[in-house]
């Protein structure tokens, strides 16, 4: 165990020594990786902000249940009971056909049109606010309510929310694809810089192999080097986003003020930042592993 710890310590010391001896080269690599990573991470950040904004707006979809015209008090009572017990509902209220009729008659402009009607054509109705803003839940509720007795029609008023969420989902998919593509590019970039490092240490590797070094021993410092390069790139990407956000927010705040809103873009959260840096390290490690293994298999 101690030997194992020492072996890793040794590899890490070697890598840090190299970092100190060539800071500029590492900085350039970090900038390249950072720029590549900041694209998907930035897009993700924008989407996360849009998602937050969408959640802030009153989005919980509203569902209206219309009873059949012939529904009696008992049937209405039954629906009222069911809604009362339902867990997916934040609040609801009953609008009786009389109230609705009265409200309609009160309204200016429609009086003339209503005069031709002899009796109240409106049904009893329930207006329901769903507790979740997820459009899928609202959809499911709409279906559920439609099957209830004496319910004539259920109207879901959430089309625009649905559209927004669909768009956000589309954006998330774009981020995924971009991230995967750039991930491959990063593996190749880091793999290539590691390959150059390998070439400068060809003799050392050759001698080490001849006197009994395992592949793992030879690979270890390069894996650390790759992961370190990834981490530096990830941190650079984070800094790029932070600065870009700062620049953006000056304009966003001005714009938001014109709309009397205090909306502003938020930086990546702790979790997202960690994911960014850890996945960058992982990509570096992978690129390095691939590069060293290819070299070792040729020896």
């Amino acid at each position: 165990m101690q030997a194992w710890i020492h072996a890793h310590q040794q590899a890490l010391t070697l890598v840090l020594k190299k970092l100190r001896s060539a800071p500029f080269a590492h900085l350039v690599m970090a900038a390249v990786i950072g720029a590549a990573l900041s694209l998907p991470a930035g897009l993700y950040m924008v989407l996360a902000n849009l998602g937050n904004a969408a959640a802030d707006i009153e989005t919980d979809p509203q569902i209206t249940l219309f009873m059949t015209l012939g529904a009696n008090d008992a049937a209405t009572k039954e629906i009222d009971n069911r809604l009362h017990k339902h867990s997916g509902i934040r609040e609801y209220r009953f609008v009786s056909r009389e109230t609705a009729w009265h409200d309609l008659q009160e309204r200016n402009g429609v009086q003339g049109a209503l005069n031709g009607l002899e009796k109240n054509p409106l049904p009893d109705a329930f207006i329901v606010h769903v507790s979740s803003s997820d459009p899928a839940t609202a959809d499911a509720l709409q279906k559920e309510f439609s099957a209830w007795p004496q319910v004539e029609h259920v109207q879901l008023d959430a089309a625009w929310v649905k559209r927004l969420y669909t768009l956000l989902k589309l954006g998330e998919k774009a981020v995924m694809i971009l991230a995967v593509l750039l991930g491959f590019a990063l593996i190749a970039i880091i793999g290539n810089t590691i390959r150059l490092q390998i070439l400068t240490q060809r003799e050392e590797i050759e001698v080490s192999k001849l006197i009994g070094a395992t592949d793992r021993f030879i690979r270890r410092p390069f894996l650390y080097a790759g992961a370190l390069q990834g981490v530096l790139g990830g941190v650079t990407a984070w800094l790029i986003l932070f600065v870009a956000l700062y620049i953006f927010n000056q304009s966003v705040e001005e714009l938001a003020q014109l709309y009397a809103s205090d909306f502003r873009l938020h930086p990546l959260g702790l979790q997202a930042s960690l994911i960014l840096i850890v996945s960058a390290a992982l990509l570096g490690w992978l690129g390095s592993y691939w590069s060293v293994s290819r070299y070792l298999s040729k020896l």
């Binding site: 001698v207 001849l210 006197i211 592949d215």
Partner: peptide, 28 residues
């Protein structure tokens, strides 16, 4: 590799590493 460690190899062309001190060469 583990078999090779039973042998002390002295190569025709030394195969010393010129980027490190005598001490570090022997420490490899």
């Amino acid at each position: 590799p583990y078999i090779r460690r039973n042998f002390g190899m002295i190569f025709q062309d030394h195969k010393l590493l010129y980027d490190r001190s005598a001490f570090d060469n022997v420490a490899l």
